[in-house]
Design a protein around this nucleic acid. Structure first.
Length: 468
RNA sequence: GGUGCCUUGGCCGAGUGGUUAGGCAGCGGCCUGCAAAGCCGCCCACACGGGUUCGAAUCCCGUAGGCACCUCCA
């Protein structure tokens, strides 16, 4: 049989691989979370969203998924962005909560565990000690460095040879032997706060960037695990260094590497350093979260998404088509259809092929068209079946407007809805009377007044419906 | 200099050798008092130049353009 196994694109092997879980029926997945140094932007959300979708799909396929997404709360940047009145740890925690809130708004489910770097210092030190023992790290005056020259596989993830790389222009001279070497442990500097330093066999200090992910992933998922994910821009140096230090320390580490595409603005990557970021707050200020989720969740996870007003408008139009179908189907059937667990075969095939969301979404739209045909034909049984399928598929993508997870997010507040419904129903009755009397002017006046308040009227043979 | 990715109809966006992607917009029709929603039909493209092949958007070579990374980055 074809298509029974899950295909993934592995960045390291640069090819598609059939997913074979390390442990039968389980998926262990580590995803790089944020360094909590400044407010989340759209790119962070996209990344988290991608792995949320993947996780939902694996779960639907019957796997038990353990998803670990870290929070790097100690880093050069958290220290740099701290102020006199907000120490680094307060900053990190405040930003972490912003991330948590943004994830929740888009219904990105919490990972199985979300470890903080500061909670894994002993584990990091243990890896560093092993690296020194094995001759892959050395102690310098200002810390401990990974010795890239000692690890012949260095560069295997991104297929680069150290000799071909453009050497970094180091600002201050450091204790590195080679520009490619990177810090595992950074000795405490005089100006850094005591709260940002830990004792170690190599003196007081703090971890370098990269080592936290090696420590946290293996702490919770084991020395070898199924999938490591993260943004495309993390491939080098972050993931390359993670891989090198973990393998050099003797761990099998990640079997498959997934990298999600970035979000761009005007053809350029959205990035703090370029300054073209759209914050989550701006994005969600006047847009529906479920449509935003649809927008970012409708592209293939490896492709770049160009964010624009047009892109949002198009996502909205497409999503509302689906939403309208579900609303109309519910009216015809008389009850909200149950989400199907057995999904249309082409949808399943698309998802099994490296999470082919765009094709999967085409199946959703085709099913909606069929469902609309069913509504025209008043075939309630067929409509119920198709609406169930649509809900099942949307649930995988996390954009089922009838799902419990979106229940409290309808355009109107739950307490206001009955009041609003009562008011509008009254107006609709007046309008129905006017229409019966062929007083189109009066009927249109009511419709226009409601439209001005942002309420859309739809007339059907069974009566008129309103929606915000 | 090195590494990887990309270029599809008005727009977004799938598709790895021969058959309809899908959505948005537009046009025509149906339905409607008029709308809205929905249905039906139309619009059939693959950066450029070579090559392989009976046949290429799909494979190979080259060219042009774009993006990302080469120690801040989801």
């Amino acid at each position: 049989m074809e298509g029974v196994s899950q295909r993934l694109y592995d960045t390291r092997q640069q090819t598609y691989v059939d997913f074979v879980p390390l442990r039968e029926g389980e998926v262990s997945m580590y995803v790089c979370g944020p360094t909590v140094q400044s407010s989340p932007h759209v790119g962070h959300l996209r990344s988290a969203l991608v792995y949320d979708q993947i996780r939902r799909w694996f779960r639907h396929e019957g796997y038990r998924v353990t998803l670990v997404r870290n929070v790097t709360d100690i880093d050069d940047k958290t220290l740099a962005n701290a102020t006199e009145h907000e120490p680094w740890w307060a900053l990190a925690y405040r930003i972490e909560r912003e991330f948590t809130s943004a994830y929740a708004t888009l219904r990105i489910q919490p990972p199985t565990y979300e470890p903080r770097a500061t909670g894994a210092i002993p584990e990091m030190q243990a890896i560093i000690a092993r690296l020194i023992d094995r001759g892959h790290a050395y102690v310098a005056d200002d810390g401990v460095y990974f010795d890239t020259a000692s690890w012949t596989d260095y560069g295997e993830l991104t297929h680069q040879r150290p000799a071909d790389m453009v050497a970094a222009e180091d600002g201050a001279p450091r204790g590195k032997r080679s520009p490619q070497d990177f810090a595992l442990w950074k000795g405490k500097k005089a100006e850094e706060p005591e709260s940002a330093a830990w004792d170690s066999p190599w003196g007081r200090g703090r971890p370098g960037w990269h080592i936290e992910c090696s420590a946290m992933s293996t702490k919770y998922l084991g020395t070898e695990f199924d999938i490591h994910g993260g943004g495309r821009d993390l491939r080098f140096p972050h993931h390359e260094n993670e891989l090198a230090q973990s393998r050099a320390a003797g761990d099998g580490f990640a079997r498959t590497w997934l990298h999600n595409g970035l979000v761009s603005l005007g053809g350029t990557k959205m990035s703090k350093s370029i300054g073209n970021v759209v914050s989550v707050g701006e994005l969600l200020s006047d847009r529906r979260p479920i449509v935003v989720r649809y927008l970012f969740g409708s592209a293939h996870y490896r492709s770049t998404i160009e964010l624009s007003e047009e892109a949002y408008a198009e996502a909205q139009a497409a999503f509302e088509r689906i939403e309208n179908f579900l609303a109309r189907a519910t009216r015809l059937v008389g009850s909200v259809p149950t989400p199907a667990t057995a999904l249309p075969e082409p949808f399943v095939a698309a998802m099994r092929d490296d999470f082919g969301v765009p094709q999967a979404l085409a199946v959703v739209h085709e099913t909606v068209t069929e469902g609309n045909q069913g509504i025209e034909a008043k075939d309630a049984g067929r409509v119920q079946e198709l609406a169930s399928a649509v809900r099942g598929m949307l649930g995988i993508l996390g954009v089922d407007p009838q799902a419990d997870e979106w229940a409290d997010s309808s355009a109107s507040d739950s307490a206001l809805e009955p009041a609003l419904d009562s008011l509008i129903s009254g107006l609709l009755e007046q309008r129905a009377a006017a229409r019966a009397a062929r007083d189109w002017e009066a009927a249109d006046r009511i419709r226009d007044a409601l439209a001005a308040a942002g309420i859309t009227i739809e007339d059907t043979p069974q009566g008129s419906h309103w929606s915000v």
